[in-house]
Simulated assay, not measured.
Amino acid sequence: MVTIIGNVKPEDDYTHPLGPEENFNESVYFNFFDREKQMGGFIRMGNRANEGHAEMTVIVYQSDGSALFNYKRPQISHNDGWDAGGLKVEVLVPGEKIRTTFVGSVVYLADPREMREPSVAFKENPHKKVRLDLVHEGVGPIYGHVAEPGGAGSQNDFARAHYEQHMKVTGTLQVEDGPVLEITGHGLRDHSWGPRYWQSTPSYRWITGNFGDDIGMVLSVVGGRVGGVFHRGPDELIRITEAELDTSYEGDTNYHQGLTAKIKLENGESHTIVGKVTGFIPLRNRRSGMFTHIGEGMTEYTLDGQRKGYGLSEYLDQAE
């Protein structure tokens, strides 16, 4: 049985009753990184049934620096599952094992930074058919919180309920009629539900990584608030209590290319994480005249100068 820290239940892996809020969103997110093939990516599906659509994102970073990408808003009318736009999420064992599949078209980006102008990037780059089939199995505990009605966090406009879990990942990727590539690696999954606008938080840094089955980490910096955890094995979760994060950027851009995080854990341990972004794509979200930049970086980490790991560093900022 999976260890759960917080008031989450295994059956929370399924969708929840659709709330009354116009911006009610129930999203699932899975990232995955194969260290041997130096490739990875993530998929995300957010159901916004009260707005009549879902938000679907697929990214695959390739070893040569290119990326396969698609974003759609397929029409939906209910919140009974995640199955739209070619992306499907199946709960195989609640709390422990999930299958994600995507069959559809993506844009091939030799330079993923072209996505700073999405309409141009989609028009001027080739499109390819892909088949992605992954199984995600928990290697760490589930940790998170579900806000009770009227309780603390019940007015949160970014996600009133949220949990995460480090995973091992196996599966296949096929691009066009090319070879079927075996994927073996690690990643992290995230599930949240409740009202959400990407514009409701000024900025955040969300840094996730795995160093094997036995160690994974998440560091979050939201404004001046620091959070996050280390997991050790399937049961142990150690909270991050302090963090100093230093980030380097490409030239005069807000595209992050490297980071150093000096952290302290609740058990008194101190660690240094150095990250090098090996694949980067700039994404954006627009609503009501506001512009949100979301930089997505496939990142190679070194823990305390010794152990290598892989994951995703996500930097969100609101434009002036």
Rank of each mutant, 00 (worst) to 15 (best):
E148N: 04
P141C: 12
G85Y: 07
N267A: 11
G85I: 10
A243Y: 01
F211M: 06
T241W: 00
K262C: 10
T57R: 05
Y108A: 14
R99H: 12
V218N: 01
F69R: 06
H127E: 15
K168N: 07
M290G: 04
D83C: 11
F42D: 12
V120L: 13
Q199T: 15
H271D: 13
G52H: 10
T253R: 01
E266A: 15
K72A: 14
S192T: 11
Q155V: 11
E137L: 03
R196C: 02
N267F: 08
E90G: 01
G153M: 10
S220Y: 08
V93E: 15
D12K: 01
L188K: 01
D12Q: 02
E11K: 05
V277W: 07
K276W: 04
H136Y: 15
E244D: 11
I4Y: 09
E314S: 05
L188F: 05
K72W: 06
H191N: 08
F122N: 12
T184I: 13
H166M: 11
I5V: 15
Y249W: 13
T292R: 05
P118L: 11
Q38S: 15
Y61G: 12
K264T: 15
L18V: 15
L109M: 04
V229I: 07
G311H: 03
K97F: 05
P17G: 08
S200L: 03
P112C: 09
E36W: 08
M217S: 02
A110T: 06
A152S: 08
Y71F: 15
W198Q: 05
E114H: 06
N23D: 13
T172W: 10
T3D: 09
F102Y: 15
G309S: 07
G151Q: 12
K128N: 13
V218S: 02
E51W: 12
E266M: 12
D34N: 13
R116W: 09
R225C: 04
L245Q: 01
E90C: 04
F158H: 13
D213A: 09
E320H: 01
L173C: 10
R286Q: 10
M167L: 14
V106E: 05
I207G: 00
